[in-house]
Design a protein around this nucleic acid. Structure first.
Length: 612
DNA sequence: AGCCCTTTGAAGTTT
DNA sequence: AAACTTCAAAGGGCT
């Protein structure tokens, strides 16, 4: 028997007060839909919402204050861990396999510490992952040549940092060889993990670059490099008609033309471009277009270099190849009714054959998706995690830990992404992609009750995050305290905005559901507990239909009941979270150290299983 | 081979 | 209007 240990159980804090990391309210009222700063009429339904942010500084202070307390907590956890491990023999081998990576005395740990030290330096340097100190990114540093947010001619320091953080990461999937040669593997990273994020790191703007990276694989040599647009039907290059392009780029007076391509730095350094670049250097896919810096960055980053080699199937009706367009034959189902209206508005009833050929236009990425693409590699590198599900849990938590500025940037990017997407595919609707998947995950879920696991046989409550994933304890979902901000500026303008309890701090337990076969640890938990967990995952499927990770602690160890509300809350790996997922502060490091030793043997992935 | 898992957010649909 | 559903990325795990 295991119980879900509430944060307060270990911290001594009242559940309701559990918000060591500052409070972001999952209850934070979503602001009215609006558009980002001066975006100039984002009628695309950006739906940006107000965000409530946490106070990082405050959190850190709390952390420092609780260092000793946390050590005590560690002791408690350690004891719990010991018992837990003793009781869990099913996954010993697996744990043993992972343990070495997290042992304090292990090389990886030292590396990790080095990494944190580096991260700390970076943080102290004033930037979030400020690149200049990021070992692998040194060569990537370059001035803000193409600041996407310079439309007004100004750039906030944070934005600058953001860009520095991002552009240096500019990378092209599949170009490992080139990347590696220029970005030596940081010694602090496991050789098992991609060097920093280079192995498969995707530029933060790659979401803007590709909606489907795989279709723009660098492995496919550019068959043509000219910016000319191919005729969607003939494949013959043609000059885009102004009417096709103009609407795509709301121009901002003044900001036109001469915008250095984001890859210019890269091209200059590369003796040979990763992608064949036109003799004159990168040429924007829309040479005739004048666009503001923002759009330029967006578009250029989005369409290049990938766009340089647009696969035939990715051609927009306008002839504009777009990564969002995916051939059903490649990744999407060949189902017929999945064609975007925009793709065949003129042929309402395309033949089955034609439908199969219709490209699939993917949804624009939202802020979190953009964030994920950027940070996934980092998390993987830091946590040695591989499973995306676990990674995503961490990313979700990190997402919540982002400062408002950071999130605002992603919201802004997402907004632009949507804007561009809508401009590229005016008639496209998210609905167009509905029903494209062969099998929906929750097809039988609607009327299933939390306890009704018979229906959801495969969705059993499980702590998905593996034990070695001490990088962070997965956060809950609901609660994104940062729902799309109306505008970054708006979000920034209200730093004092109410920062209610963040979901991360006091989230209702949501057990991660996972097929039993995948469980590392399988423990039966009173139905009550599982019920609450699954309830959020089963029926409330909004967004995170799933689960809020939590840690299962042997009930016997704590000698408490499983049905108590307190048990339905995840353990707050606050300091751990800070240390691992955010730029570490001295306090974080201190806390990390203690937590680290704790979690080396602490199977965070204790599995809880709903009553059966 | 292909779905599942997992995250948040956007947008669609249903109630 | 609220609730619910689907899809977006990613990639190991599983069937």
């Amino acid at each position: 028997m295991f119980l879900l240990l509430a944060p307060s159980a270990l911290t001594g804090k009242r559940p309701g007060l559990y918000c060591p990391r500052g409070q972001r309210s999952q209850d934070a009222p979503k602001g009215p839909k609006g558009e980002l700063n001066g975006g100039g009429g984002d009628d695309l339904g950006a739906n940006d919402e107000m965000i409530s942010f946490k106070d990082e500084g405050e959190q850190e202070e709390k952390i420092s204050e609780n260092v000793s307390a946390e050590r005590d907590l560690d002791d408690v956890k350690s004891s719990l861990v010991n018992e837990s491990e003793n009781n869990s023999s099913s996954s010993d081998s697996e744990q043993a396999e992972r343990r070495p990576q997290t042992r304090p005395d292990s090389e990886s740990y030292e590396k990790t510490r080095d990494y944190f030290g580096e991260a700390l330096r970076r943080q102290q340097d004033g930037g979030f992952f400020k690149s200049p100190h990021y070992p692998g990114y040194q060569f990537l540093m370059f001035p803000d040549l193409t600041n996407p947010y310079l439309s007004n001619g100004s750039l906030s320091p944070s934005a600058r940092t953001y860009l520095q953080m991002k552009w240096p990461l500019l990378d092209v999937p599949g170009s490992a060889g080139i990347k590696d040669s220029r970005s030596p593997t940081p010694g602090h990273l496991s050789n098992k993990v991609p060097v920093v994020q280079h192995a498969h790191h995707v530029h933060p703007l790659t979401p803007l670059i590709t909606y489907s990276n795989e279709h723009f694989s660098p492995g496919t040599p550019p068959s043509h490099l000219s910016p000319e647009i191919l005729d969607p039907k003939t494949g013959i290059p043609r000059t885009p008609h102004p009417s096709e392009l103009s609407p795509y780029y709301p121009l901002s007076p003044g900001a036109v033309g001469s915008i250095a391509h984001p890859l210019s730095w890269f091209m200059q350094q590369q003796g040979q471009p990763m992608y064949s670049i036109p003799p004159g250097g990168f040429r924007h896919p829309y040479p005739t277009l004048a666009m503001n810096a923002s759009m330029s960055s967006l578009v250029s980053s989005r369409f290049s270099p990938h766009m340089v080699t647009p696969p035939p199937h990715s051609l927009h009706q306008t002839g504009i190849p777009h990564p969002a367009i995916v051939s059903p034959a490649i990744k999407q189902e060949p189902s017929g009714d999945n064609i975007s209206p925009s793709m065949h508005a003129k042929s309402p009833v395309p033949s089955k054959k034609e439908e199969d050929k219709k490209p699939h236009i993917k949804k624009p990425l939202n802020a979190f998706m953009l964030y994920m693409k950027e940070m996934r590699a980092k998390v993987v590198a830091e946590c040695t995690l591989k499973e995306s599900a676990a990674i995503n849990q961490i990313l979700g938590r990190r997402w919540h830990s982002l400062s408002r500025e950071e999130q605002a940037k992603y919201y802004e990017l997402a907004r632009k992404e949507r804007q561009l997407h809508s401009q590229l595919y005016p008639g496209w609707s998210a609905r167009d992609n509905y029903g494209k998947r062969k099998k929906r995950k929750r097809e039988n879920k609607p009327d299933s009750k939390p306890e009704d696991f018979s229906i959801r046989s495969k969705k059993q409550c499980v702590q998905y995050l593996p034990s070695e994933k001490m990088c962070d304890s997965p956060a809950s979902s609901h609660g994104s305290m940062l729902d799309s901000p109306a505008t970054p500026s708006a979000a920034l303008a209200s730093p004092a905005a109410p920062a209610p309890t963040h979901s991360e701090q006091a989230q209702p337990l949501s057990l991660t559901t996972k097929p039993e076969g995948r469980m590392h640890h399988h423990f039966s938990v009173p139905g009550k507990t599982s019920g609450s967990a699954s309830s959020s995952s089963s029926s409330s499927s909004s967004s995170s239909s799933s689960s809020q990770p939590s840690i299962a602690i042997p009930i016997g160890t704590l000698g408490s009941q499983s049905s108590t509300p307190i048990l339905t809350r995840p353990i707050p790996f606050t300091s751990l979270h800070h240390s691992m997922l955010s730029p570490p502060s001295p306090f974080h490091q201190a806390a990390l150290h203690s937590h680290h030793s704790l979690f080396q043997s602490q199977p965070l992935s204790l599995v809880t299983k709903p009553t059966e």
